[in-house]
Design a protein around this nucleic acid. Structure first.
Lengths: 137, 137
DNA sequence: ATAGATGCAAAGAGTTTGCATAGGT
DNA sequence: ACCTATGCAAACTCTTTGCATCTAT
């Protein structure tokens, strides 16, 4: 049976309260405010557990390592700001993408990532406003 | 100035002749048929060089490490077969995705990946026909 | 009390870099 | 001859695993 430890709840709370998908490192840093000696291995182990029980979901963007967000089962996509590197949810979907595949191929699923400037980075071409740290410093 | 070595031309030939994006490991294995003692570091160094001179392009799919293909500058997307893991080009594009982003966000670019069964894997639910190896054995 | 969870450190996988040598030009 | 490119091995980053200890139940 699973146990409710301080680290597990802190870790989940961090993901739940984030307004965007977080990397394991970001989760570690945020959760350490709550649980001082938290180790990175514990973060990875709990991310795997939370994934298995469906509490969180993996966000994989092209060329980036995995981020994690609370599982909101609705189909959605992601937007990455090319200034601040933060990732945001996009709840719209172009739909009907099956027709794009070559003849003889069947399409079951798709992933879409949009790139551009987020609302905070519109005016400032080199850095965001600084709500949260950059993924790529 | 750059030199034309056996390894560099073999390496580029492999990518040029492939009908799909290849991983560094796949490039190594294929190029070794031509240049016996080829090292992985040489593959990585030449991939970087070929990228810089615009001869090849990186193909980044969500959750996968980078693959490489010849640079055909036309905008296109990719399809990954969920059976054989191979990646194929998709030359169609849904277009007009800017409208999907949240208000205040500007969209400059997008990446789209389709998933399903390729032509070869239509009938066989567990493995492909075996033209080339699986990325995830 | 007991079995799962933690933290540390070591082990893996993928990619990059340092260095002496080989080989284009 | 010169100087880039190569191959090997070590370094690095990210993630996973082994193990002794801790702790929720």
């Amino acid at each position: 049976m699973e146990r409710l430890t301080r680290q597990r709840s802190a870790l989940f709370a961090v993901i739940e309260n984030a307004q965007r998908p977080l990397s394991p490192q970001e989760v570690l840093e945020a959760a350490r405010h709550e649980v001082a000696g938290l180790g990175l291995a514990t973060v990875y182990r709990n991310l795997k557990l939370l994934l298995e029980e469906g509490a969180i979901a993996t966000v994989n963007l092209p060329g980036e390592s995995a981020r994690y967000e609370v599982a909101h089962h609705a189909h959605h996509h992601h937007f990455q700001c090319t200034d601040c590197q933060r990732v945001f949810d996009v709840h719209q979907c172009p739909g009907d993408l099956a027709r794009l595949a070559p003849a003889g191929f069947s399409v079951a699923r798709h992933e879409l990532t949009l790139y551009g400037h987020c609302a905070d980075c519109q005016g400032s071409p080199a850095q965001g406003v600084g709500h949260m740290g950059h993924s790529h410093p």
